[in-house]
Design a protein around this nucleic acid. Structure first.
Length: 280
DNA sequence: GTGCCTGTTACCTC
DNA sequence: AGAGGTAACAGGCA
């Protein structure tokens, strides 16, 4: 669920909630495997007494700069953070809880248990594997062209690959390809100059739209995305193709189709996004 | 109940 | 390099 706009929203809300500057007075782990590369006891020992120096985002990672280490959190499918007071009961899906020096607690829930916490003095060992940050100044048209160059691969799996562009997931890739009128199976090396320009603009546009709308919340179930303050995002109203299969394209009135690409449900308009190279 | 679906990524083999 | 499968998991849904 959480892609770049959702993680960005979480970071902003944590900063607005004044978590920066607080000390971690205690920690509790309710699911050991949420903690990567060390035991939960080691994790608690290391993190307790550290101060939250900064809260940032890199790709889909939350980056908590602490006084001695950096805590990286990847939410995967169903990870979410909530702020509560310390008497708050432990929810069945709660995996980790940090007790903060002002009496509040940072609760981490993860229904499907795919999310991971990395506490490390060397965050670059993980973050340097990530590709371009699509809302940064470094993400220029030239940078996108360079990163596409030499790849012979379908465009959708390429855009999902965090080694090239960091932060796009299934929703925003489908949205960006629809906006750019590019079929999800188009081989990267067949993209024309004007299509790359459109793709570049579309990636930035759909991500900014997601951030402005404080993220995308699909269903109403607890597993869906909610921000730290418990708010739902609004970006589901702005989606043009994702989960609109069977409905009419908002641009040309054709019926939106759904196929499987790279094992992911993939939505596109067969009229606006023709695949000239495979005749689909 | 059964089987299939799900917004992520790592790891394996071909 | 890249494609395809499986796995980690839990729950919603037909």
């Amino acid at each position: 669920m959480p892609e770049l706009p959702e993680v960005e929203t979480i970071v902003r809300e944590m900063r607005e909630a004044s978590l920066i500057g607080l000390q971690i007075e205690n920690a509790a782990v309710f699911w050991d495997r949420s903690i990567a590369a060390m035991t939960s006891n080691q994790f608690c020992q290391k993190i307790v007494s550290q101060v939250v120096v900064n809260i940032q985002r890199r790709g889909k990672f939350l980056v908590f700069v602490l006084s001695h280490d950096t805590l990286l959190v990847h939410l995967r499918m169903t990870g979410k953070f909530l702020i509560a007071n310390h008497e708050c009961e432990v929810h069945p899906h709660e995996r980790v809880r940090l007790y903060l020096s002002d009496g509040r607690v940072l609760r981490y829930e993860d229904q499907r248990k795919f999310g991971k916490w990395y506490l490390t003095p060397h965050p670059e060992q993980i973050l340097d594997k990530l590709g371009l940050e699509p809302l940064s100044k470094k993400f220029t048209l030239e940078a996108l062209k360079n990163c596409l160059a030499g790849h012979h691969r379908q465009i959708k799996p390429f855009l999902l690959d965090q080694r090239y562009i960091a932060g796009l997931g299934n929703i925003y890739v489908d949205e960006a390809l629809w906006a750019a009128k590019i079929h999800p199976l188009r081989p990267v090396q067949t993209l024309k100059e004007h299509e790359i320009v459109n793709l570049y603009d579309s990636i930035i546009e759909v991500l900014k739209c997601g951030v402005d709308n404080i993220g995308t919340s699909l269903g109403a179930a607890r597993a869906n995305y909610f921000s730290v303050s418990g708010r739902r995002g609004n970006n589901q109203q702005a989606l043009k193709v994702f989960r609109r299969d069977g409905l009419r394209c908002l641009r040309c009135d054709a019926i939106i189709r759904k196929i499987v690409v790279a094992q992911r449900g993939t939505h596109f308009c067969p009229n606006c996004q023709k695949n000239k190279y495979q005749g689909i």
